[in-house]
């Protein structure tokens, strides 16, 4: 597995551009500031606009339970909230890989 770390403070445009140029399988987004409801769906939207809707988007950070269904409806495939064990995240990607 290879991880392209784009650094802190990336805009949705930055993230989508990097994902396309690096031809990634998945994008992991982290937000602790509460901006996830705006930024996560924006990444999904921009990917679709660039005909790259096949790239899996997952999110994590401080995400209230109430927001999870809304994010999923917006196209975020999985949300790993506070306290998610590493093993849960790993098994999600293993499954996603087999499904691909």
């Amino acid at each position: 597995m290879e991880v392209i770390y784009t650094g802190l403070r990336q805009t949705p445009e930055d993230i989508v551009e990097a994902a396309i140029q690096e031809d990634v399988d998945a994008i992991g987004l982290s937000s602790l500031s509460g901006a996830h409801m705006t930024l996560f769906p924006e990444v999904v939207r921009l990917l679709k606009k660039r005909k790259s809707g096949d790239i899996v988007v997952v999110g994590g950070g401080i995400i209230p339970e109430d927001d999870v269904p809304k994010l999923k409806r917006a196209g975020v495939k999985a949300v790993f909230g506070p306290g998610t064990p590493l093993s849960v995240i790993v098994s999600f990607f293993e499954k996603a890989d087999k499904g691909a």
């Binding site: 597995m1 290879e2 991880v3 392209i4 770390y5 784009t6 650094g7 990336q10 805009t11 445009e13 930055d14 551009e17 990097a18 140029q21 690096e22």
Partner: peptide
């Protein structure tokens, strides 16, 4: 595995349509 970190240093040129960066 690899953590490809060079992008971060080039981040501010990454969204320019005339630029393509690949690690």
């Amino acid at each position: 595995g690899a953590v490809l970190g060079d992008r971060i240093r080039m981040a501010d040129t990454g969204v320019d349509p005339g630029v393509f960066i690949r690690s």
